[in-house]
Design a protein around this nucleic acid. Structure first.
Length: 415
DNA sequence: TCTGGGGTCCTAGGACCC
DNA sequence: TCTGGGGTCCTAGGACCC
């Protein structure tokens, strides 16, 4: 019997948030619709039974688009684009607020539908997953002379099941690994199914821009462009050693492997969270002194929300940190490791307050965040090494003095 | 027209220990 | 006493992803 062939699927829901909203507001089908922004633009029911929707032209603020319908994308608006910028491109687009509870509900539904067909699933967020199809019955079947025939039928069955249980469409890529499947799922979006083998890499993958590779972001894309490398094929032409010289051992090797479609990462069905955080961007930039009361209240609220998140999910964090973004968009973080992990709002507030004192708060703030890292499960956390707490002392004084008194920031006994 | 919120992983330097 | 190497922890920043 021949060795089992590895078949990995990547499933991506099509314009997920927007598509969920269209189930609620079917009258918007075909129209440019974007999801994003705050609470203020809920649809208003009218006396005649129709609804009035906010449009982008009415929007004022700092929100970004989380999802746009394909009709809206035709105007050049896209995820992560500022709503004000999107309004300039497509003022008539309908604007809907995000409703994460609803998207999470549909997320559970589609994942359950997939699991009925293929249970080995790796979560990659609310709207996408990897699925290991290798052990699914029929996956290794050869249909005619086509070794991918069996797996194509399974992927089609998954798509049917997802549509039946959610009313939503998805796109699936099926290939020998996660890297290629992620690329493949985008090749025929929306509502597409693409099956590739190693033999298709040269014709289907190499012509694509390097940015299609998951892990080549804006910075690496610019660096590669400066080296005259635009497509994955051009990247594949460069010798491994040449890439290592320019991008370092680890990233250089990875680039080389990725360009050749090499990736043996497994589908990981369970993982523990590493950190949890809460952050908020203010509607206007706030100053530590002039807006002390407002900042203090937000700070405390973030700590309380984070504590509630930790408690609800059964975790404690031993490293507490803050994140600040200034009006010039510069971001700084400070963190502090405690002797004992905590999920207590006051303890988090206290530690975060200490971190805050180590930052120069001369500039106005645009964002404030609080984070808990080094998470452990709240249950069965008996043993804790005393060593870590002993080693903290000497370094505490290294922090540069904050020019503006951080205590002005405090709205309770935080220090 | 300035750019959300929630994450993961990597790098790098210093402290500290063996 | 000096030098060096390996390993871990802590902290800060940055790239990247959904």
């Amino acid at each position: 019997m021949p060795p089992r062939r590895r078949w990995i699927a990547h499933l991506d829901m099509d314009a997920f948030y927007a598509s969920v909203e269209l189930l609620r507001y079917p009258e918007l089908k075909g129209q440019p619709v974007v999801i994003g922004g705050g609470r203020r633009h809920q649809p208003v029911p009218l006396a005649d039974g129709t609804r009035r929707f906010a449009t982008l032209r009415d929007y004022q603020g700092r929100g970004v688009i989380t999802t746009a319908t394909y009709a809206a994308r035709a105007y050049g608006v896209n995820s992560a684009m500022g709503l004000m910028k999107a309004a300039a491109l497509c003022p008539q687009a309908v604007l809907l607020p995000v409703d994460f509870d609803e998207y999470r509900r549909y997320s559970r539904l589609f994942k359950a539908a997939v699991a009925e067909v293929a249970p080995v699933i790796e979560d990659r967020g609310i709207d996408e997953i990897y699925i290991d199809l290798s052990a699914v019955a029929g996956a290794q079947d050869v249909v005619g002379h086509d070794a991918s025939g069996g797996v194509r039928a399974i992927a089609q069955e998954i798509r049917n099941n997802v549509r039946r249980s959610t009313g939503l469409s998805c796109s699936i890529g099926v290939t020998p690994n996660k890297l290629l499947s992620k690329i493949a799922s985008e090749l025929d979006k929306p509502d597409g199914l693409t099956v590739l083998t190693e033999a298709d890499i040269a014709t289907r993958i190499w012509p694509l821009p390097v940015r299609r590779i998951n892990g080549i972001g804006p910075k690496a894309g610019i660096r590669l462009a400066a080296l005259g490398i635009a497509t994955i094929g051009e990247l594949a032409e460069r010798p491994r050693a040449w890439l290592v010289e320019r991008f370092g051992r680890s990233y250089g090797r990875w680039l080389h492997d990725a360009a050749h479609g090499v990736d043996d990462r497994p589908v990981v069905t369970h993982s523990e969270p590493v950190s949890m955080s809460r952050e908020t961007t203010f509607e206007r930039d706030l100053h530590a002194v002039a807006d002390k009361a407002e900042l203090g209240a937000v700070f405390t609220q973030l700590c309380e929300q984070l504590a509630a998140d930790l408690q609800r999910k059964g975790y404690r964090g031993r490293t507490i940190g803050i994140k600040l973004r200034f009006d010039d968009f510069r971001t700084v973080t400070r963190d502090q490791t405690l002797a004992e992990a905590t999920a207590d709002a006051a303890a988090i507030r206290r530690a975060a307050g200490v971190c805050l004192k180590r930052v120069d708060l001369g500039r106005r703030l645009r964002l404030l965040g609080v984070r808990a890292g080094s998470l452990t499960r709240a249950q069965g956390e008996a043993k804790r090494d005393a060593k870590a707490s002993d080693s903290r002392g000497p370094r505490r004084s290294d922090a540069p003095p904050a020019r503006v008194e951080a205590s002005l920031f405090d709205d309770e006994a935080a220090s």
